[in-house]
Computed example of a mutant assay.
Amino acid sequence: MDTMERLGGDAFAPQSTYLNTASTGLIPAAGVAAMHEGVLATAAGRPLDHFRDVEAARAAFARLAGVPARQVATGASVAVYAGLIAASLPEGAEVLVAEDDFSSLVNPFHGRPGLKVRTVALEDLADSVRPGTDLVAFSHVQSADGRIAAVDAIRAAADAHDARILVDASQSAGWLPLPRADFLVAVGFKWLMGPRGIAYLVVPEDLGGLTPLLAGWVAGEKPWDSCYGPVTELAHSARRFDISPSLYSYAGSLAGLELIEDLGIPAIQAHNAALADRFCAGLAALGQAPVVAPGSAIVSVPGLGARQPQLSAAGVELSDRAGNLRASFHLYNSHEDVDRLLEGLA
């Protein structure tokens, strides 16, 4: 299939030129139907076992991350899991973060008393790891401008100084191969094309020394035997870090995860990058220069953020982020969408 054509087939029916996956991904029709069926079943008093959907989503994300499902916890937000990791660090620990990274990732470390948070430019992260650095926390792909972090170099520097890394893959999971990390978090409502209310946490085989501060009954080894009083036996896997799930959301998440697996990350990555390259070439013809982010599915154009309302009124959906006009290209987009955006800018 020509990588410039849509990969999603009939799974999607956007009513706009939708180039805003970095904010919220489109949900496949099958995912919408699954959520609808779940709500109708609840209203009718007809039980459906949506906990099976949670386990299916956990297993699907684990395959994307290249880890066993037992290393994946399911929750609701990046901030919750970043906060859990922040709480596990010793008093005085140094956390290295990238400047202007997404708040949900970095703010929990700033909010935890007793930590030393050091901020450097994204491109300086690897060179800034030093003796005494305990954790390096950064986004795989930057939300504001699409820059891709040099994960291999950062990981090598962290290993050399006995530091660990936390990678936020919210802007990469679903179109980029996921990196090896001590901890990895991602939401499910962007490039994974699920509803809001889902986040994943990947932990090491030894569970990373995290304290399950948020554990409720679902974190028990036998959840239905853990409903009352203290949980006497926590799950022996990352499920001990599960948060009571938004069941309808997990029902709706499976269609997007299955589509990604069917198409394969390499095909989606090539498709998205080709559309981004087409947009960048068109910008050059218009005398505009985007933020340099080679290979990214996100293209941000400085100074054009104010054009977002006008483009939205014309049926082209993008974001205004940090003054940049941010376009993000995914499998349901085509070269026609890119050309329509360029026409709007011209």
Rank of each mutant, 00 (worst) to 15 (best):
R70A: 15
D242G: 06
A56M: 01
L89P: 07
H335Y: 05
S312Y: 05
S334H: 01
G132V: 00
R164H: 09
S103D: 15
Y228E: 12
G83V: 10
V338M: 03
P90F: 02
M1A: 14
Y332G: 01
L257K: 09
S103G: 12
R307N: 07
G256H: 03
D2I: 06
S249Q: 06
G287Q: 12
S128N: 11
S328L: 08
I298P: 02
L166F: 09
L304V: 00
I198L: 15
H50R: 14
G9S: 10
A126W: 03
A270K: 12
S226R: 04
I265R: 02
G31M: 03
P223K: 08
V185C: 10
Y228G: 00
F241A: 09
D134K: 13
S300W: 08
R155G: 07
A153P: 02
S16E: 11
A186K: 00
K116T: 11
A69H: 08
Y332N: 09
D53C: 06
W191F: 15
A163R: 05
R63C: 03
V167S: 07
S334G: 12
I243T: 12
Q288W: 14
A322T: 10
R321F: 06
E261T: 02
E5G: 03
Q71C: 13
A327V: 08
I165W: 04
D49N: 15
Y200R: 02
S103Q: 13
G252W: 08
S246V: 11
N333P: 03
G287A: 06
A186Q: 02
P302E: 04
R321T: 14
S139Q: 10
Q15N: 14
V117C: 07
V185I: 11
G66W: 03
F183T: 06
H236P: 02
H110M: 10
N107C: 00
T74Q: 08
A34K: 02
G208E: 05
S300D: 08
H271R: 06
Q171R: 14
R278M: 14
E317D: 13
P309E: 02
A144Q: 07
P230G: 11
A33W: 05
L178R: 07
T74G: 09
P195R: 09
H36T: 15
R307Q: 15
E205N: 01
A98P: 11
L311N: 06
V301I: 15
L125Y: 05
G38M: 01
W224G: 00
F109P: 08
P113M: 07
S334P: 05
P204K: 11
V32K: 10
L213A: 15
N20A: 14
Q310D: 15
L254A: 00
G75T: 07
G132C: 09
L26D: 05
I268M: 12
D225L: 12
E258F: 04
L48P: 01
A144H: 13
A79I: 06
G83S: 12
G25S: 08
L311W: 04
S246M: 06
E233T: 13
T24V: 10
P179G: 05
G295R: 06
A281Y: 00
R52D: 11
A93H: 11
L345V: 00
G264T: 01
V316T: 13
A30P: 04
A56T: 13
R6K: 10
S312H: 14
Q288P: 00
L214G: 11
A284K: 12
R239C: 09
K116L: 09
L19A: 02
M35E: 15
P302T: 06
L275Y: 09
G75K: 05
F138Q: 03
V291T: 14
I260F: 02
